[in-house]
């Protein structure tokens, strides 16, 4: 674990210590120590099976690490479920599409977090007017201009869908936004837009983790780059201090 101090940095938003994860005999995470500092965009790179996705799943509550701790702002937490991760301000934009194509944009934006009137035991009438209004505002906030929030997500292009996913994450005031290969299947222009948005995260007070196979994208967008291989961190450096050849060499 070169370059990582054993005690959490004072400004660490998220601090992982000794994270281990086994999948039926495969040791996917071998004691990950990682600080994600508030206000940075961290690039996470590595070949398929290097453990990036597993690490992200632990942070977004999809998987629970078998050993080790995760602390948010110095407080050790058990994330456990996606819902709890969201409540802690950790939003994830997955590489697979996390939208329901047969539902409207407004409904997709609020999936699982619908504003409810007269609720009983967590179930109740949705405040659809509010959902529509806030959805339009949320789309505008990420500079996505769609005709209406009632359009079905299935009608949108890949880039527009990613835009809706970003709008969703931003609307719920995430503190940490994880973008898991967000530019897969996007056109060049759409990719530029997503990269520009990622660069602008710190200005909006949001910390980012950006995962990509494209080293150029990572070097363009991130402040710091962490490379993983075989379940371990093999490089952790400021982007300014690392060259693309060096990145390729460690992977």
């Amino acid at each position: 674990m070169n370059a990582v101090t054993p005690t959490a940095a004072a400004d660490a938003l998220i601090a992982c210590r000794g994270l281990h994860k086994w999948y039926s005999g495969v040791h996917a995470l071998k004691g990950i120590d990682l600080d994600i500092r508030a206000g940075e965009v961290l690039g996470l790179v590595g070949d398929n099976g290097a453990g990036k996705s597993t690490l992200i799943k632990c942070l977004s509550g999809v998987e629970t690490p078998d050993d080790g701790t995760i602390a948010v702002e110095g407080r050790t937490v058990r994330i456990g479920t996606p819902k709890r991760a969201m409540r802690l301000g950790i939003e994830t934009i997955h590489q697979y599409n996390s939208m329901v194509p047969t539902m409207s944009i407004a409904r997709n934006l609020f999936i699982g977090r619908e504003p409810v009137r007269f609720g009983l035991g967590g179930v109740g009438l949705m405040d659809q007017r509010r959902m529509r209004r806030e959805a339009v505002a949320a789309l505008r906030d990420v500079d996505l201009h769609l005709r209406s929030a009632d359009a079905l997500v299935g009608e949108l292009s890949g880039g527009q869908r990613q835009g809706v996913a970003i709008a969703r994450a931003m609307h719920f005031r995430s503190r940490l936004l994880i973008l898991d290969e967000p530019t897969n299947h996007l056109s060049v222009k759409e990719t530029e837009k997503v990269l520009g948005f990622t660069r602008g995260l710190p200005a909006q007070g949001v910390t980012g983790i950006f995962i990509s196979h494209n080293m150029h994208h990572v070097l363009e967008t991130c402040d710091r780059v962490v490379a993983m291989a075989r379940g371990e961190i093999v490089l952790d450096r400021r982007v300014a201090d690392v060259g693309i050849d060096e990145l390729h060499a460690v992977l």
Partner: peptide, 23 residues
């Protein structure tokens, strides 16, 4: 009209997405 209905449709429409959104 209810959030439960939204969850039912999301569960059938895209199970992975529904799960990752905490439904």
């Amino acid at each position: 009209r209810t959030n439960l209905g939204n969850w039912i449709r999301a569960t059938g429409g895209n199970l992975e997405a529904a799960k990752s959104m905490g439904i």
